[in-house]
Amino acid sequence: MRVNCVGAIIFDASDQLLLIKRGHPPGMGTWSVPGGRLEPGETDAEGLRREVLEETGLRVEVGRLAGVVERPGPGGVTYVIRDYLARVAAGVPVAGDDAADVRWCAMDELVRLPLADGLLDALAGWDVLPTGPPVP
């Protein structure tokens, strides 16, 4: 079964990436961009705005599609994740819903965090990192 998901790639004025620490499986304890499963009848933009608000308390404007990845899930599920660039329209980040924590992360910090599998490679491959891929 394929499950449609969305993720938000959000940078602040200092080119720091917004990350959430997953509070539940899959990926519990790893850092990733905010996002999750689409609800029935929801567009990508609607789902993205809802997920970011639920997980971070931020209201966002959805930009262009950055890229698509597929990740295996439990029980033979395949998560089809469409990641979009987004911009904060209002709010201050506060962890909520299934996010255990939320933070802005400088590019040189990315390599020191336990990131979700394939996140850094996907962002670098889509050429959306402000200074290119960080060097370990």
Rank of each mutant, 00 (worst) to 15 (best):
D117P: 14
R103D: 00
A8N: 04
A122L: 02
R22K: 15
L17T: 08
D83T: 04
I10L: 08
V69S: 07
G125I: 06
E109S: 14
G96Q: 09
H24N: 12
E55V: 07
P133R: 14
G57M: 10
R87Q: 09
P74E: 14
A122S: 15
D83M: 11
L48N: 06
A13L: 12
V135Q: 14
S14L: 13
T78G: 02
I81L: 06
T131F: 14
G73H: 01
A95R: 11
G75P: 04
S14K: 15
L19N: 06
M28N: 08
D101E: 14
E55H: 08
T131Y: 12
V111H: 11
D15W: 02
D44W: 02
V128Y: 01
S32V: 03
Q16F: 02
G41F: 10
G73Q: 05
G23Y: 07
P114N: 12
A124L: 08
C5L: 09
R50L: 03
E42G: 10
T56A: 06
L85C: 02
D15G: 08
A95Q: 08
A90Y: 01
L113Y: 00
I10E: 03
E46G: 15
D117W: 07
G67V: 09
R82T: 01
L19W: 00
Y79N: 04
V68I: 15
G35S: 09
A89Y: 01
E42R: 12
D121Q: 11
L38S: 07
L119M: 13
E109P: 11
A116Y: 10
T131K: 13
A45T: 11
R87C: 03
T56D: 10
G76L: 03
V88S: 01
L85T: 04
A66Y: 10
L115R: 11
A100K: 00
R87F: 05
V52D: 04
T78C: 01
L53V: 00
G57V: 05
D12M: 05
M1T: 10
D44T: 05
Q16R: 14
S32M: 08
G47K: 09
W126T: 01
L38V: 09
D101A: 15
F11A: 08
E39I: 09
V94Y: 04
G118Q: 02
A99I: 00
A13N: 13
L17R: 03
D98N: 14
T131E: 14
G35Q: 06
C5H: 05
G118I: 09
G41I: 07
Q16Y: 02
R103V: 02
G35F: 12
G96C: 09
Q16L: 03
L110M: 07
P136L: 11
T131Q: 13
L123I: 11
P93R: 00
A86R: 02
L53M: 10
D83S: 11
I81Y: 00
V3P: 01
E51Q: 15
